[in-house]
Amino acid sequence: MSTSNFRAGHVAVIGRPNVGKSTLTNALVGAKVSIVSNRPQTTRHRLLGIATFPAGQLVLVDTPGLHRDQGKATASAMHRWMNRAARGALEGVDAAMLVVRAGQWDEADGFAYEALRSAGLPVVLVVNQVDRLKDKSALLPYLAQISEGRDFAGVHPISALKRNGLEALVDTLLALMPEQPAIYGEDEITDKSQRFLAGEMVREQLMRQLGKELPYATTVEIERFEVEESAKSGPLLRIGAVIWVERDGQKAIVIGKGGERLREIGAKARQHMERLFGARVFLETWVRVRQGWSDDEAALRAFGYHD
């Protein structure tokens, strides 16, 4: 990789919940490093997605949705943790993408913009899901309205899902990065371990299949992650995942009638793992109860939610 005029730096991916931040991160990286569902708060951890191009490298800091602080009296420990993770993404980055949903701008979007400007960061406005706008003629007036009185380093209407508009966005972001060699190797796509990603793949299926029934009451702990090498068939990953819930009734929902729901969650998670890891996966899953874990700071630390 030539380092002549090469640019590299960190970009925070910020926005209110469920505007497509993780879908955008995955699209730019070219691989699934951040889980996606249509439920808010799917992303809980700060995660780096590494996108390398001929002209430079973008280290994308994907974050939980940014909320106004609710105060300790009303916010759960999980909610406070996610807000800390989102705000922590602003430390040491070179620029930020403010991701919004096309046709929408509310108080939460304004709050996120002000947080970025207060941090002194160049802000690139990314208007996602333009493909879903029914009235395409409304896009330009909408862009003019939300840009008025705000200092954006660039404004990019895109569709992260369909990968439309990404090339121009990358050009704008790279221009904001310092000239320096790549921070990570060309073949690296995230800072997270396979063990962490395996847990996220299971949690993604929980959010997708049970998001309406158990939106935030589950988390996943990887108890076992072993690699067995075989000259004939390649590596086999043996993974043991514990799904934690807060009540016995929730355990029954996750398992499903005759264990059917748990098998479906495991089967789909395993398929995603095999595609991401490029290896065969043997996945075992269990469901256990720990009452009130999402509002217990000690439990959160035990389950990997570290500042």
Rank of each mutant, 00 (worst) to 15 (best):
S2Q: 01
N5I: 00
H10E: 05
V11A: 13
I14F: 02
G15M: 02
N18K: 05
K21F: 08
K21N: 08
L24D: 04
L28A: 06
G30W: 03
R39W: 04
P40M: 03
P40A: 01
T43D: 06
G49C: 13
A51E: 09
F53G: 03
G56L: 01
Q57W: 10
H67R: 07
K72F: 04
A77L: 02
R80Y: 08
N83V: 15
E91C: 04
A95M: 06
M97R: 00
V100W: 04
R101W: 00
Q104M: 08
R117T: 09
G120M: 01
V123Y: 10
L125F: 12
L125M: 11
L125N: 11
V130N: 02
R132G: 00
K134Y: 02
D135P: 03
K136W: 03
L139W: 00
P141Q: 07
Y142N: 02
S147K: 06
S147F: 02
D151Y: 05
A160H: 06
E167R: 15
L169P: 12
D171N: 04
E179K: 14
Q180M: 14
Q180C: 13
E188W: 04
E188H: 09
S193H: 09
S193G: 05
Q194A: 13
F196W: 03
G199W: 04
M201R: 10
M201P: 00
Q205N: 02
L206H: 12
L206T: 13
M207H: 15
R208G: 10
Q209R: 15
L210S: 02
K212I: 08
E213I: 01
P215Q: 04
A217F: 03
T219I: 12
V220D: 00
E221W: 07
F225E: 12
A231F: 10
K232E: 10
G234P: 03
P235E: 12
L236P: 04
I239R: 10
V245Y: 12
V245L: 13
V245K: 13
E246Y: 10
A252M: 07
A252F: 07
I265W: 11
M273I: 08
M273L: 08
G292E: 06
L300F: 00
L300P: 01
